[in-house]
């Protein structure tokens, strides 16, 4: 073995070693969450806290489902409706902005995009009063409306960049055959949209599911999505950690499943958030 080869092997070993170390550090919190969720309360004592549970115990889960079950149902209703509506809206906006000339587009587009970076605190108090005035405060429909509206920037951006890749010649050909605005959309653009819809749906699904800010301001106890009771419990003095970790798992599971199954599309949505098309 030459010195070069030895150095190479040492270096490879170093790279893999560091990567594995980082991976372990990244996984520690998940390990702790998973083992704690299936333990009994006494097992979370110092001497056994890092161990695997001696036997799978579902008390924590049962308590968590009892406590978070209704809010989880709210989360699902909210996420499904809001995601579908905002994907449809985004697709239409993206189609118009990429394939049709709109007066003042150079000004309008940045103004739309700014909504993506808006600190929502800057609109919360008027939003709260507005929702009160139109009678949508405190319910899931109001929260759906808010997520749809503030989702417009990102969904529009993703679809606009996606549709920019569809060659204009395809639309021109359609126009020659006499297709108008709607036919071009339903017959040319929409059938090619599946990957775009997947990216947007995944993105909105995780964003809305994970949202806490709008949820805590705009809902009352009966319409809370799961993040609200979880955050309130977590920020308080609760000591029943098996139940809390079960709750965390319940809240984490849907977006995590989406991420694991469709990771590639998730990352595309993630990188789209940094604007460049």
């Amino acid at each position: 073995m030459t010195a070069y080869e030895m150095r190479r092997i040492a270096m490879r070993g170093g790279i893999y070693g560091t990567l594995v170390l980082f991976a372990l550090i990244f996984l520690i919190p998940i390990y702790m969450t998973a083992v704690t969720a299936f333990k009994t309360l006494p097992e979370t004592r110092l001497s056994t806290v890092w161990n695997l549970p001696t036997q799978l115990n579902f008390t924590g889960f049962e308590q968590a489902i009892e406590r978070f079950g209704p809010s989880m149902g709210n989360s699902f209703t909210l996420v499904i409706v809001a995601t579908i509506v905002s994907a449809a809206l985004g697709s239409m906006n993206g189609y118009v902005l990429s394939k049709w000339r709109i007066p003042g587009e150079r000004v309008i587009f940045p103004l739309i995009l700014f909504g993506m970076f808006l600190p929502y605190q800057a609109i919360l108090i008027p939003l709260f009063r507005f929702m009160n005035d139109i009678g949508l405060y405190g319910g899931i429909p109001g929260l759906i409306l808010v997520h749809v509206v503030y989702g417009i920037p990102i969904t529009t951006l993703i679809f606009r960049n996606f549709y920019a890749e569809i060659p204009d010649e395809m639309l021109e050909a359609g126009t020659m055959d006499g297709a108008g605005f709607w036919q071009l959309y339903t017959q040319v653009v929409f059938p090619l949209s599946v990957p775009g819809f997947v990216v947007v749906i995944i993105w909105q699904f995780t964003q809305i599911w994970n949202d806490f800010l709008f949820a805590i301001f705009l809902t009352t106890e009966s319409s809370q999505p799961i993040t609200v009771p979880l955050a309130i419990l977590s920020g308080g003095r609760e000591q029943n950690f098996p139940m809390m970790m079960s709750g965390a798992l319940l809240a984490a599971l849907p977006p995590l499943l989406v991420y694991i199954v469709m990771g590639r599309y998730f990352i595309r949505g993630l990188l789209a958030g940094s604007v460049k098309g």
Binding site: F22, F26, N210, S234, M245, A251, A252, P255, I260
Partner: peptide, 17 residues
């Protein structure tokens, strides 16, 4: 996948954990 999965979690879940 391991390094990116925390991104899929809610900040509330991260905080709780």
């Amino acid at each position: 996948t391991i390094f990116l999965f925390p991104m899929a979690l809610s900040l509330v879940v991260t905080g709780t954990i």
